[in-house]
Structures are given as structure tokens and as C-alpha cells.
Design a protein around this nucleic acid. Structure first.
Lengths: 337, 337
DNA sequence: ATAATACAAGTAACCGATTACCTCTGTGCA
DNA sequence: TGCACAGAGGTAATCGGTTACTTGTATTAT
């Protein structure tokens, strides 16, 4: 494969001149020389070597997207904008999918440091509560090695992040159900919940403010996949006084819950109202279409890239951007009878 | 950031020795020296620089996944295994999502060559028939620059590929509908179809073998997204003698078709049977759950990585592996009344 | 006792770029 | 005429590793 030395020889100039011409550096070069170089490069089928460039520049123009799942549409939708925006700015994206395995997150972080990525967009993998510590350590490791980071989907200190106010989202969803007359509202939470338990807090606060006591039996946890929702709804519907409405903290569990209810012969929304989190094709297409708390996925990706660029190219300090959710009302909820 | 020179100085040895110890090269080193080096590395918080390694080794241990869509579960499911398998072998994965824009495919190829990826797993972006030429040129460009390639989802000569026999899949699906007594079977094809039009050929051959003449009015094309299926079903159901069954060539269009039919007040499967391609959560969860021609996604990813490694690490010639589809019978098809 | 060999390390070229600094030539102005 | 300066280009160090080849010493065989 041709190098700039080959071009230099062919054009009868030095490599410095070749580099200048090929990179449009601000240094005078005679038009004639320029042409010779361009021609030589073309004839040799020259392909710049970004590895060598990276080494010299100490910049790789690569960013990693480090997420817990890539089969969940929530991440996929965000990934699409992120990859696109980064591409527009000349960055390539490493896909790092932990599959919710915390050890993989740490492995990735090690490798990404070795690969000298310029930045990482990070949504923590958290299955057990202790994983939070690992997440924080990983984040710190990245920062210590001079890598820009922006997080989403959880809270960390001293890191840029796009924060989606799911507390309010859950609050709004719960209030909506209350307005429909529901009093026994089930809550399908994620794996031991995040650090802040925002959604759960929103749910509980809405109930409290309405003067309804929290019933621990109405709160169960699932694995964030469809089967998790499926199991949870069975549990919830078998307690003494089952709920007449249910909120699930993510898209897949909401659909799983719907399926579970149907399989138990429960009519949705007739006998049971369901609200999910995260909008997607799934929620629309299911029968009945799900009312959901939508998170602004495109915007999350957009903002994440923006915050990252601020750090990489602008050297600015970490900061947080807050985004709001939106309640999309479809037909999976109805007035309590 | 510490380099091997720093370690060498601290441990009082040469960089060669440091490199040997750190990489476990087969060269004798005294245990005492080894320890000094390991300790120095640890104290300095040494992080190997894979960029420098890549330059020296002329191997980057990176592979690109170049696909038309990342929001479609079909690709996502394949991507998950690919990224995982590659990771196990020490390769990082670049995500290259063309969003079905052919110019992006070419841009990616250029960049990937510059980044000196070791390999590319490639599913062509093809919207217009001419795109085929661009795909082929891109593939050729990669090969010319010494990059290993494996393709899937379309046919190319002289490239390793995993070939899914969708011809037989479509044949089987069509026969299944014929057995159920359907004679007017609609076909929702993709964008101008692929090079080989395997699915369409399977559909047509099955009809012909059953002595049924092909009716061009029964064949329409969609954009591979849900709205495409939605529109197509409307078209099909408005011709003089509408079909009693429909086959759609991908997952999203099948679901779109189902939705379209419902919105037209058509009962599925009562008045219209539907078969989709590609299995996914969507197909299961929809009402009624869709009968589909399933492609073996995990296996596709598995084989793709295998074929790629053969080339990168084994220097073997391109070859093709054929995989079969499987008809998953659910409840969206019924005997013609 | 000496040559041959194994062991343990070091030297320096190389991977393919970038770029600070230097050199040479020609022009303009005092 | 002499000098400053702009224009055009070159030299070589650098980025952070790898590795072929060399060197010096200790051990073994003869």
C-alpha cells in the first residue's frame, strides 16, 4: 500500500510537502507541485492511513457507544442518531454492547482506553445494586485517562449527562390513572431499580399526594425483557386485592405485561389498564396499542453528541441537560369500572 | 500517559525487554527483571497504546459491521451476535449504519479503508436497482485494499458470504397457503427486489408448479418499513379480485400489512391470511401473532464471523455457506373459506 | 582449558504519518 | 548595493510501540 514516501519519491518532492498538499495545510505550495503530488497520489491509489495519523495527532476520531442492550429498540433508536451525528463530525463509532453483563462493561472500558477513543457515550449496565459502584469506577477510569464521557440513563456526579426527567413522567402517568379512577395501581420496576429510583419515586409521590397509601405488594421487579413483564403481571394479579392498572418502567416489560394479562384471560383495558415507558413500534402495533411515557430518543442522542463534542473539541466542563418525557395516550387505559 | 519508555527507565531496562514482558513474547527474561517491569507498569498506571501497536503490527483488530438499518430488529439481532463473537476474539466493532442511503455506504467504505479495519461484514444497501453496481464497486474497493469481507443478504461473486435460502423459504410459505386453499395470493416485495429476487421467484415458482398463473396485479413493492406494508395492503385489497392471502418479504412490512388490513376492517386471518418474513418479538406480540418465514439470525452472525476469521487469520479463499429458513406457524393464516 | 551454546538483555530501524525549524531563492525598498 | 522578508520547500524528530540483530556472560561439552 502506497505511503506519502512513495508519493514524495514519485513526485520528486519531500514528504513534508506531500503532507501539506494532501491535508490542505496553510503553507504555500506552487500550483505545479501541488498538481504533481495529487496526480502521483491518484496513480498510486494512495489511501491515507488514519492509524498513523491518530498516533501523530494523539486523536483517533473514534467514540464508543457503551450500552446495556442493542436488541432493545430504546437503545437502538438512540444509537442511530448518535452514530449518524458522530459520523457527520468525522468520528467513527465503536459498538459496545454489554448485554447487561457488568464484567463486560469493565472489559470494554479497559479496551477503549487502550484504543485511545476520544470519547464514550455511556449508559450504565446495572443489574444488581452494587453494579452502581462498578459503573462509577469505570467512569472514573475513563476520565482519569483523559477520555471525554457523557452518560445517560442514570445519574453520576462530575460527568456530562443527558438527564431525562422520568420522575415527572412516572408522576404524570400515575396521575393519569388516578384521574381515570384507579386506586390500586401496580408498578413493575426494573432490576432493583436505578440509583435514584426516579420512576418509582414518581409513582409513589403521585399516590401519596392523592392520599393513597403505598402497598408494597403492588410493586414488583422484572428483568427489563418481555418475559419479565409477563411474570410480573401474573404475580400482581394473584395478590388478594389485585390492581386495576399497571405501570411498567420500560417498553418490553409493558408489552410482556400485556401479553401476560391476555394469557390470563384478563381484558385490557376493560379489566386492567396498562401504561408503559418508552415509545416504539411495538407499543403502537400491539393490541390494544399502549399508552406510554415517551422519552425523547432522538433528542437524547442529539444532546449526548453535543455534550461530548463540547468536551472533546471545546474543552468545556461537564454539565447536565434535562429533557422531559411525554405521555402518549393510546387505548390501553380506561376509566375504572 | 506512561509509555514503555517510562517503564524501561523506571525499571532500569530497555524497551525491548519491557515489550517482551508485557506481551509475554517467547524470549527468556529473568524472573526478577520481569517483576521489576510489572511493578513499574502498575505504578505508572501504564495503558498499552493499541494505536501504536496497530501501526507496528499492521493489524488493527477492528471489524466494521456495514448494514442498511439498525432500527430493524433483523439487523440488530444479527449485530448482537457478531459484536459478541468478534469481541471474544479480540476485535472491536465499528457500527456503520447507512440508513439505506447508498452514498453513505461508499463514504463508509472509504473511511474504513483509511482506518485500516481488518475486515468488514457487509449487508448491501440497495434501494434502486443500480445500487447493485455501487455495492459491487465498494466490495471490490475493500478487497483491493486487502480487507477481508463477508457479505450477507445478497449475492456477490468472489466474496465470502452467508447465503440464506429465501427462495425455498418463499416457496414453502406459498405452498403452505396453497394447501390452505388460497389461490389469489398477494406478494409484497421490497424495493425493486434484490439482485436475485429469490423470494419473488420462490413465490412465483410455487404458484406455477400448482398450475396457477401469475397475476402481476398481485405483486407490489414497499419500502421495507411498516408504512410500506400498510400502503401495499391497501393497494392489493383494492384490485378487482383481491387476494385472500398475502406474503410480505420482511418483518416490518408484514406488521404494517396487518395493521393496514385491520384499519380497512378486514379480519385477519378470517378474511385475509398473512405470512411475514423474519421472526421477531414484533411478530409474536402482534394480534394475531404472525406466521413467518424465520431466518436463522444467530446462526447468520455466527457464520459471518467464522468466515471472516477464516480469511483474516487463516488466509483462506472466499466461500459460501448456505443456511435454511424455517416456517413458523402461528395464527395469522387460516383455510380459505 | 577452550570452544560452543544458552541465556538475558540491549540497539536501532521500522510502522506511516505530522510538524517545528531550517534553508534557499527571489523580490522590494531604503 | 544591501538587507529584510515572503515564498517554496526540505530535514529530522516525534507519536508509542515491535522486533531483527547484536552483545555480553554463564554454562556445558570436549
Amino acid at each position: 500500500m502506497a505511503t506519502i514516501y512513495d508519493i514524495a519519491k514519485k513526485a520528486g518532492v519531500s514528504v513534508a510537502t506531500v503532507s501539506r498538499v494532501l491535508n490542505g495545510v496553510d503553507h504555500p505550495v506552487r500550483e505545479e507541485t501541488r498538481k504533481k503530488i495529487i496526480d502521483a497520489a491518484k496513480e498510486l491509489g494512495y489511501r491515507p492511513n488514519k492509524i498513523a495519523k491518530s498516533l501523530a495527532h494523539r486523536r483517533t476520531y473514534t467514540v464508543a457507544l457503551l450500552i446495556p442492550s442493542i436488541t432493545n429498540n430504546f437503545y437502538t433508536e438512540i444509537a442511530e442518531v448518535i452514530e449518524q451525528k458522530l459520523g457527520e463530525k468525522g468520528y467513527s463509532t465503536y459498538l459496545c454492547n454489554t448485554q447487561r453483563m457488568i464484567e463486560k462493561e469493565t472489559q470494554y472500558v479497559d479496551d477503549l482506553i487502550a484504543r485511545r477513543v476520544d470519547g464514550v457515550i455511556f449508559s450504565p449496565t446495572r443489574v444488581k445494586p452494587e453494579d452502581n459502584l462498578v459503573n462509577a469506577r469505570n467512569l472514573e477510569e475513563l476520565r482519569k485517562n483523559g477520555i471525554a464521557v457523557v452518560a445517560f440513563g442514570s445519574h453520576f456526579s462530575n460527568v456530562s449527562q443527558v438527564y431525562i426527567n422520568t420522575y415527572e413522567g412516572a408522576l404524570e402517568a400515575t396521575r393519569y390513572l388516578l384521574e381515570l379512577g384507579h386506586r390500586r395501581i401496580g408498578f413493575i420496576d426494573g432490576l432493583e431499580a436505578g440509583t435514584r429510583k426516579s420512576r418509582r419515586r414518581g409513582y409513589m409521590d403521585a399516590l401519596r399526594m392523592a392520599g393513597i397509601e403505598i402497598d408494597a405488594n403492588l410493586i414488583v421487579s422484572g428483568n427489563l425483557e418481555m418475559d419479565g413483564g409477563y411474570e410480573c403481571v401474573r404475580k400482581l394479579m394473584q395478590i388478594e386485592e389485585p390492581p386495576t392498572a399497571i405501570i411498567a418502567v420500560n417498553n418490553l416489560m409493558a408489552v410482556g405485561a400485556l401479553k401476560g394479562a391476555k394469557d390470563m384471560g384478563i381484558d385490557v383495558p376493560g379489566e386492567l389498564s396498562i401504561i408503559g415507558f418508552d415509545d416504539s413500534k411495538l407499543s403502537e402495533v400491539v393490541e390494544p396499542p399502549l399508552t406510554v411515557v415517551k422519552q425523547p430518543l432522538k433528542e437524547i442522542g442529539d444532546v449526548a453528541v453535543g455534550l461530548l463534542m463540547e468536551q472533546i473539541e471545546g474543552e468545556s466542563m461537564p454539565r447536565m441537560v434535562e429533557l422531559k418525557t411525554q405521555l402518549i395516550i393510546r387505548v390501553s387505559c380506561t376509566r375504572k369500572r
